[in-house]
Amino acid sequence: MTEASANADGIAICSITIKLNGEPRTLEVYPWTTLLDMLREQLDLTGTKKGCDHGQCGACTVLLNGKRINACLTLAIMHDGAELTTIEGLASEDGLHPMQTAFVTHDAFQCGYCTPGQICSAIGMVAEGRAQSADDIREQMSGNLCRCGAYPNILAAIEAAMPETRNRVGVFEAGASADGHDGVREVKP
């Protein structure tokens, strides 16, 4: 991160570089720009949603160094050098991510506004490797509100996509930090 310029108040606009959906991006951000506003307003990546802006709904869930976080409650400036995956970065040339496909086939949404956050959260949850039962999934997906009430279908979609998602992402070793300073270590699926 470098200080690029300062405005009239002496507040610095800083330049950060992040690997966003696999592509290195260098951006100028104010210190108060949240990761969420950076995505939505500066980069026009509006797939990550703003439902509450206070970490109370999960619609802004993204994968930061592979771990699910609320993009609304963190500052962009704090993530220089980080790796960020948003809903826009999940599908590949081969098609949709299995979690995305499962959400469609199980009709795991209605209005679709919480959906990107649900999908990113579900992938993050699979990587955490702590959900062993339906009740575990329900509990561990409780950070993502769905006002349409599609929870049973969300559960069904996640159960269906879990094995293939696990094969893709691997499972984190306990103790790896969210900011990935010591690297996100994958263990064999």
């Binding site: 970490g55 999960g58 869930t61 771990k67 699910r68 976080i69 609320n70 409650l73 963190t74 959260s121 993050g124 949850m125 955490e128 561990q140 409780s142 950070g143 993502n144 969210a178």
Partner: peptide, 9 residues
């Protein structure tokens, strides 16, 4: 406490 996302942060 909180949610998995918040606990990660």
């Amino acid at each position: 406490g909180a949610s998995p996302q918040l606990r990660n942060m």
